[in-house]
Design a protein around this nucleic acid. Structure first.
Length: 208
DNA sequence: CTGACGATTCACT
DNA sequence: GTGAATCGTCAGC
């Protein structure tokens, strides 16, 4: 089990890092409660040129400031006034790259995650979708700016590997406002994994 | 200071 | 398939 270090996060290619995060473990130890999940879905946000990014066109505000910091930091923000979204900041200081974790597969502390999310039993919805991931892991907006190099919240490599053919790149979700950038294949998923959002599991199929 | 809105989720028809 | 929930952020006045 090896915690990902600053060299991993500070690299310039956010797409490569987003792809490499698949299969890694996110671990949180808040309040002595250990929970972890294996990442199965990520989305890259490539900074100022990326219309889908909060930092598009050099928008540097209180909220987005952490993205301009060094890699290996958590960027957490509130969406729709309800959901916390957990992102990993990458690249060097001054370049606002970030990767949204959209889904994980529960590994450790499932009972704790059930309690945090108010669910009765384990099913695929526990950690499917970015809002649910943060909720299950106990991540809140106040954790924005947290270092992922510490012991409370970090990402580790436990030796688990994926075959290249198990990884799929697709357009990102919910970024239709981004014009042509919405079509970029910046979303990475583990093929056939039931925790990946927007998949057929439990979702009514369109009629034709 | 004000108003519009979102990198979503869930319940309900 | 449709729509509500709910509040911090940000552009604009």
């Amino acid at each position: 089990m090896k915690k990902l270090d600053s060299h991993f996060y500070n690299r310039p290619n956010v797409l490569k890092i987003a792809r490499e995060l698949l299969g890694k473990l996110i671990i949180s130890t808040f309040d002595g409660q250990i929970t972890s999940g294996r990442i199965v879905e990520t989305e890259a946000y490539a900074g100022e040129p990326d219309r889908a990014s909060h930092a598009w066109n050099g928008r540097r505000t209180n909220r987005t400031e952490v993205m301009y910091g060094i890699g290996g930091t958590a960027y957490v923000y509130l969406c729709y006034g309800i959901h916390q979204m957990f992102n990993v900041v990458t690249n060097q200081q001054g370049i606002p790259h970030a990767i949204l974790v959209r889904a994980v597969e529960p590994v450790t502390g499932i009972d704790i995650m059930l309690e945090r999310t108010g669910k009765k039993k384990l099913d695929y919805t526990l950690t499917k979708g970015p809002g649910n991931v943060a909720k299950a892991l106990g991540i809140f907006t106040r954790h924005t700016g947290y270092s992922l190099l510490g012991d409370e919240l970090f990402i580790a490599d436990d030796g688990f590997t994926l075959k290249k053919t198990d990884i799929l790149a697709t357009p990102r979700i919910g970024v239709d406002y981004a014009g042509s950038d919405a079509a970029l294949p910046y979303r990475f998923i583990v093929k056939e994994n039931p925790y990946v959002s927007g998949k057929k599991v439990g979702i009514t199929r369109k009629s034709k």
